[in-house]
Deep mutational scan, measured.
Amino acid sequence: QGEKVEGLQAQALYPWRAKKDNHLNFNKNDVITVLEQQDMWWFGEVQGQKGWFPKSYVKLISG
């Protein structure tokens, strides 16, 4: 089970394309609201879409 977080935002360092239905698509420089953190994967929201993404593709910009 991941840790729920509030008020964290991350900026995409690279584009990410979903490999599964529960993954989040985003483009480089998109700002993602992080909702949950697990070891290597984070759950977040961007442009009304929610899903999992690899944390190595983003950098935290707040929180």
Rank of each mutant, 00 (worst) to 15 (best):
Q47V: 10
N25I: 04
N22C: 14
G48Q: 04
Q1E: 04
K4M: 15
G48Y: 11
G2T: 12
L24V: 08
K19C: 12
I32A: 02
S62Y: 02
N22T: 14
I61L: 13
S62M: 11
S56H: 15
G48A: 07
D39I: 05
G48L: 06
E3Y: 15
G51R: 00
G7A: 15
A18D: 10
W41L: 06
E6R: 10
R17D: 08
A18I: 07
P54A: 02
H23F: 10
K55S: 15
N29P: 01
V46H: 14
A18T: 12
K4Q: 04
V31E: 08
Q37C: 09
R17G: 05
P54L: 07
L13G: 01
G51N: 01
F53T: 00
L60V: 12
G44R: 00
K28T: 15
W42K: 00
F53P: 02
W41I: 01
P15W: 01
T33H: 07
V31L: 13
Q38C: 12
A10Y: 14
T33A: 11
Y14D: 10
G51D: 01
Q9L: 09
L60H: 04
G44S: 00
G63M: 14
L8I: 09
E45W: 06
E45G: 06
G51F: 03
R17T: 10
F43E: 03
H23C: 03
A18P: 13
E3P: 05
E6W: 09
V31H: 10
H23M: 07
G44Q: 00
K50C: 10
V58E: 02
K20L: 08
K19T: 14
A12W: 00
N27W: 02
Q49D: 03
Q1C: 12
V34R: 01
F43C: 02
E36F: 03
V5W: 10
G48W: 00
M40G: 10
S56C: 07
M40L: 14
I32T: 00
K4L: 06
K4P: 05
H23E: 02
H23L: 10
N29T: 05
N22H: 05
S62T: 07
Q11R: 12
L60M: 12
V34G: 03
D39H: 03
L8G: 12
Q9I: 08
W16R: 10
H23Q: 09
L8N: 12
Q38S: 09
N27D: 08
Q11M: 10
G63C: 14
S62E: 04
K28R: 07
E3C: 09
K20P: 04
Q49H: 14
H23R: 06
N27M: 13
F26N: 00
E3R: 11
V58N: 02
L35A: 02
M40F: 07
Q9T: 11
V46E: 02
N25F: 03
F43V: 00
P54M: 06
Q1S: 04
K28I: 02
E45M: 08
V34Q: 00
A18G: 14
K4H: 08
Q9H: 14
E3A: 05
Q37P: 05
V46G: 07
N22E: 11
S56P: 05
A18C: 08
G63T: 14
V5G: 09
Q11V: 04
D21Q: 15
H23Y: 08
G48E: 14
L60D: 07
Y57N: 15
I61S: 05
V5H: 02
D39G: 13
K4A: 08
V31G: 03
L8P: 04
N25T: 05
K50I: 07
L13F: 15
A10L: 06
W16G: 01
D30P: 01
V46T: 09
S62H: 04
H23G: 08
V31D: 03
L24I: 04
G2E: 13
G7E: 15
W41C: 05
G63V: 09
N27K: 08
N22V: 05
W52V: 00
W41R: 02
R17I: 15
Q47G: 13
Y14G: 09
E36M: 08
I61V: 15
V34E: 02
N29M: 13
G48C: 04
F53M: 03
Y57V: 11
W52G: 00
W41Y: 12
Y14F: 01
Q47E: 14
K55C: 08
P15M: 15
T33G: 07
N22P: 14
P54Q: 02
Q9C: 10
W52N: 02
V5C: 03
M40C: 15
I32C: 00
N27H: 02
K20D: 10
Q9E: 14
P15Q: 14
S62C: 11
E45I: 07
N27L: 04
T33R: 13
Y57T: 13
R17M: 11
Y14L: 14
D39Q: 05
K28A: 06
L8D: 07
P54V: 03
H23I: 02
G63W: 06
K19V: 14
E6K: 05
L13T: 07
T33W: 08
K19P: 09
V58Y: 00
F53K: 00
W41F: 06
W16Y: 05
K59G: 03
S62F: 02
L60Y: 05
N22Y: 09
Q38H: 03
Q49F: 01
A10C: 08
N27S: 04
S56L: 10
S56T: 13
E36A: 13
V46N: 05
N27I: 14
V31M: 14
A10T: 01
I32D: 02
W52F: 07
D30F: 01
Y57W: 06
K28F: 03
F53G: 02
G7Q: 15
N27Q: 09
G2D: 06
G48R: 07
G2N: 08
R17S: 12
A12V: 02
W52K: 04
N29E: 13
G51S: 00
Y14W: 12
V5T: 07
Y57R: 13
F53S: 00
K28E: 08
D39T: 13
T33C: 08
G48P: 02
K20F: 10
Y14S: 07
M40T: 10
E36V: 12
G63Q: 06
K55D: 13
G51C: 01
W16K: 03
F26L: 11
W42G: 01
G63I: 09
V31R: 13
F26E: 00
L8S: 10
I32E: 00
D39P: 05
L24E: 02
W42F: 12
L24A: 03
L24W: 01
Y57E: 06
K19Q: 15
A12K: 01
V46W: 11
A12S: 02
K28V: 06
L8C: 06
F26Y: 01
L13K: 05
G44C: 01
L13D: 09
E6M: 11
G2V: 11
L60A: 08
V34K: 01
Q37L: 06
Q1H: 03
R17Y: 06
W52R: 00
G2R: 04
E45K: 07
Q37K: 15
I32H: 02
M40D: 14
L60E: 13
S56N: 05
L8Q: 14
W16V: 04
Q37S: 05
Y57C: 09
G44T: 02
F26C: 01
P54W: 03
K50V: 06
V58T: 04
P15G: 15
D39E: 11
Y57D: 04
R17E: 12
S56Y: 07
K28G: 07
L13M: 07
Q9R: 07
R17F: 09
N29W: 04
P54D: 01
D21N: 06
Q1I: 02
L13N: 13
A10R: 01
V34H: 05
V31T: 13
L24C: 07
I32F: 03
L24S: 00
L35F: 05
P15S: 14
W52P: 01
L60K: 10
E3K: 11
S62A: 15
Q11S: 12
V31N: 07
A10H: 03
G48M: 07
V58L: 01
G63F: 04
V46L: 15
Y14V: 14
L8T: 13
L60G: 08
Q47A: 14
Q37G: 11
Y57I: 05
S56K: 06
Q47C: 04
P54R: 01
D39A: 13
Y14Q: 09
W52S: 00
K4W: 11
W16A: 03
